[in-house]
Computed example of a mutant assay.
Amino acid sequence: SEHLLFGFEPFGEHAVNASWVAVQELEKLGLGQNVDLHVSEVPVEYQAVQNLLPSLWKQYHPQLVVHVGVSGMATTVTLEKCGHNHGYSRLDNCNFYPGSECCMDGGPECIHSVIDMDAICKRVNSSGLGVTLSVSKDAGRYLCEYTYYTSLYLGKGRSAFVHVPPLGKPYSAEELAQALRAVILEMLELMEHNTEKQLCQHGQ
Rank of each mutant, 00 (worst) to 15 (best):
174 E>R: 05
82 C>N: 08
188 L>N: 06
160 A>G: 08
160 A>P: 01
157 G>R: 00
14 H>V: 03
47 Q>L: 12
177 A>Y: 04
117 M>K: 04
59 Q>W: 07
123 R>E: 12
137 K>M: 12
162 V>Y: 00
147 T>V: 01
132 T>I: 08
156 K>V: 08
72 G>Q: 12
121 C>Y: 03
86 H>Y: 09
34 N>C: 09
85 N>F: 01
149 Y>K: 05
146 Y>I: 00
124 V>I: 12
43 P>Q: 03
57 W>G: 07
91 L>S: 14
190 L>K: 05
81 K>G: 04
24 Q>N: 15
193 H>T: 09
192 E>H: 13
85 N>S: 07
68 V>H: 01
117 M>W: 01
203 G>D: 09
65 V>E: 00
194 N>H: 14
156 K>Q: 10
140 G>Q: 02
137 K>C: 12
17 N>C: 05
179 A>T: 03
45 E>N: 09
92 D>M: 05
189 E>P: 04
110 C>K: 09
176 L>N: 06
165 P>G: 06
135 V>C: 07
31 L>C: 06
124 V>A: 04
165 P>L: 02
154 L>S: 06
131 V>G: 00
26 L>A: 06
106 G>K: 10
60 Y>G: 07
1 S>D: 11
97 Y>C: 10
127 S>F: 08
130 G>V: 10
147 T>I: 05
147 T>L: 02
140 G>F: 01
192 E>Q: 15
168 G>T: 07
188 L>Q: 11
10 P>I: 05
189 E>D: 14
20 W>R: 02
28 K>H: 13
107 G>Q: 01
48 A>F: 00
185 L>V: 11
109 E>N: 07
147 T>C: 09
162 V>E: 03
109 E>L: 08
25 E>N: 13
27 E>Q: 14
4 L>Q: 05
177 A>T: 09
165 P>N: 08
24 Q>M: 10
35 V>Q: 13
178 Q>M: 12
187 M>D: 00
158 R>L: 09
71 S>M: 04
51 N>R: 15
195 T>E: 14
47 Q>V: 12
86 H>V: 13
59 Q>H: 11
202 H>R: 13
